[in-house]
Design a protein around this nucleic acid. Sequence first.
DNA 1: CGGTGTGAAAGTTTTCACAGCG
DNA 2: CGCTGTGAAAACTTTCACACCG
Lengths: 249, 249
Amino acid sequence: MTDQRPIPGEIPSDATVPKVVVNRLSLYLRELQRLESAGQATISSGQLGALLGFSDAQVRKDLGFFGQFGYPGVGYRCDELIRAMRDILGTNQLWPVVMVGVGNLGQALLGYRGFVRQNFRIVAAFDADPAKVGQSFDGITVRPMGELPAFVREQAVRLGMIVVPTEHAQAVAEQLVAAGVDGIVNFAPVTLTLPPGVQVVAVDLAIELEQLSFAVTSRLQTDSDSESATHADGASPADDSEPETEPPA
Amino acid sequence: MTDQRPIPGEIPSDATVPKVVVNRLSLYLRELQRLESAGQATISSGQLGALLGFSDAQVRKDLGFFGQFGYPGVGYRCDELIRAMRDILGTNQLWPVVMVGVGNLGQALLGYRGFVRQNFRIVAAFDADPAKVGQSFDGITVRPMGELPAFVREQAVRLGMIVVPTEHAQAVAEQLVAAGVDGIVNFAPVTLTLPPGVQVVAVDLAIELEQLSFAVTSRLQTDSDSESATHADGASPADDSEPETEPPA
DNA sequence: CGGTGTGAAAGTTTTCACAGCG
DNA sequence: CGCTGTGAAAACTTTCACACCG
């Protein structure tokens, strides 16, 4: 039991992996974690695909970018595949994250449990408003912007979240990069211009709604599957941020 | 000035438009709105693309799916193109939206100004927790789940936002659909299974971070442009939800 | 059997390149 | 001129189909 069986984390590292494949990887992982919690030990590409609205071939091809994980005639072992997916996505290690901007949305994100579950930890929050500095939310005390560079450097933080008003997002992004961050989740509805090598994931909540209004207006082809989950762009999130109880009807 | 000039809203409606094109349309619109506010009257495909990290040809091809909006030798008139984009995306009309789940994240979204600016209005919020019902957030009083069907029907609401804990998301989605909603933004990290014809946009905040950890781990090719905004998947959002002041350093 | 891994084919999206227009 | 609109080519992604394996 010391070997993990199929050619494991052999991430070919050269073959450029399409972004859309990495996105599906996250969906596979999410589903696998749910299945494992439910006690399922193995799953086939066809079953996994069906749960997410993809074909069996697509699941196999996607996994094929990273190695061989399956057992012919059996499928994939959930525990092994989860570990492999997390190795690939980088979430077997803990990622400290700094947040800038502690308004309503920032405060909500500070309490969001979904981050911790995937091994992300918001280790500090910064705000330029002196009235915010010193306040605590979910155990995190807001720090002044001046402390950002030293904190990022000393704690070797690589990821930052921007949750400030639009007009300050670009400047804050530059401060994060100057401090040493090389990955940013940007919640401000503006395109950031940053040096190459800095990775940005943008989340624009109004745009998500726009995509929906287009889709319902034009009855965009959903998928065509008789069953099937329609998932427009990225993935699906927001969860147990809090106890918004929901015993349906 | 009664005619809008180029073959306007001629949405070919048959030629199936790729989802990724619609996504870029939202980015074009966001940028155009910023440019117009800044007083710019016209813009070329090359300029617009450069601001977002796309090629001039891509901008023109994308617009070409919906009609002819440009003036050779000149470019596009910002005001006209904004109106056209909004017609296409459906946001020249006001969209009422119902929210289910008023936890931390739901409360933050109730106050998010970015929705209103793109013509979305959260007209009601529902929660199954009796302790939440009756409370008000940003002028919206939380209603009991039982009132959902009548409200959606009477107000002819087509869009819903799911902001409940994961385990209740599927059931809530079914209630929304039963009530008549045909477009859903799902913030719970689970894939919804719904009848065809119902549109779902999924937003999974943990997945966004996962995409980032993969990208910074593998130094994913960002774009290659010397300048350039790196935008991983969808769009970029979260903005002036509140007054999280940010006079950078 | 049932199911993986994978070349080859089909389909889709992006880039190229250029005619045409004001 | 500068820039659009658009066919045609290139690049990329998905689906097919099948050899192989336990």
